[in-house]
């Protein structure tokens, strides 16, 4: 629990007059599994989109492995409109595109599965390996780099073998059962060699048995690939079972953080999100 992998600092994301994420600060340490929970529309996915470069934050910064990778402050029209805090604290503008963030070592999955549907399982994984390719387009077209290509294929197959997807390698990815598609999406994210894995509701739409499988799968992945996992999830069983720490947000604001036990007994979290069982 020492090294900081991800550190989100005072991030505010404002769309016009709507503040989707308000002054969010959180930290993820090496080797942890951290969950981000909160009611629908609380701004969880928006926070993910800021970290992965889909949106540039209105104000605030994101550090990855002790280096600032994203930073912004309200400018132009936003300068007047800005409703968040810490105005003027950040002076730098750093807005990398999502592919650059992925290159740094942050991989993600999506809430609604976004596989390359008409391509095979193997191709899906190979595409994720493309960005590490050194050869240019000519060398690659005329097979001058066949060694690299071969290595890519072997690595991809090895990854599929580890994750029990090897038998499905030639299947079209859209023909897989839903649970397997979730696994494949994680496999594809792993193929980019990340050190931090962001999972956006990986258990959405899974039945209880598949959810249990997924829990084991995420643990296995974390241990085998020495990863840090940061995830959004609604399945409380999964969340309480798997996470080392939990962050709770509501209306874009952080309302609590702590171990699963602490969160379960936090009055604010119970009021905002967990609720009380009816027979109590």
């Amino acid at each position: 629990m020492s090294e900081k992998v991800l550190s989100v600092q005072d991030v505010t994301m404002q769309f016009g007059g709507v503040v989707a994420v308000n002054n969010l600060s959180l930290e993820v340490h090496k080797g942890e599994i951290v969950c981000l929970i909160g009611p629908n529309g609380a701004g969880k996915t928006t926070a993910f989109n800021v970290i992965t470069g889909v949106y540039a934050p209105t104000n605030g910064a994101v550090e990855f492995e002790e280096k600032t990778i994203i930073s912004n402050y309200p400018q132009g029209k936003m300068e007047k409109l800005y409703a968040g805090e810490h105005k003027g604290k950040y002076k730098k503008v750093l807005e990398p595109t999502p592919d650059k963030i992925t290159k740094l070592g942050i991989a993600r999955t999506f809430q609604n599965i976004r596989l390359f549907k008409s391509l095979t399982v193997l191709e899906n994984v190979l595409i994720a390996k493309h960005m590490r390719m050194k050869a240019n387009v000519f060398a690659d077209t005329f097979l001058i780099n066949w060694k690299e290509e071969k290595k890519m294929r072997e690595d991809a197959l090895e990854l599929l073998r580890i994750l029990d997807l090897y038998e499905l390698k030639d299947e079209k990815s859209s023909s897989l059962p839903y649970g397997k598609q979730r696994h494949l999406e994680i496999a594809r994210a792993l193929a980019t060699n990340p050190s931090l894995l962001l999972l956006d509701e990986p258990a959405a739409g899974l039945n209880p048995q598949e959810t249990d499988e997924l829990t084991d799968f995420i643990r296995k992945v974390r241990d085998q690939f020495h990863l840090t996992v940061f995830m959004i999830e609604h399945h409380m069983n999964l969340v309480m079972d798997i996470s080392d720490r939990i962050y709770v947000i509501d209306f874009g604001k952080l309302i609590a953080n702590g171990t699963p036990n602490e969160i379960q007994n936090n009055q604010r979290v119970i009021d905002a999100y967990l609720g009380v069982a009816e027979d109590e």
Binding site: V54, D99, T102, H130, M131
Partner: peptide, 12 residues
């Protein structure tokens, strides 16, 4: 297939 996913997989 999917621009957003492609970009998230590191494709410029």
């Amino acid at each position: 297939e999917d621009e957003i996913a492609a970009e998230a997989m590191g494709i410029n």
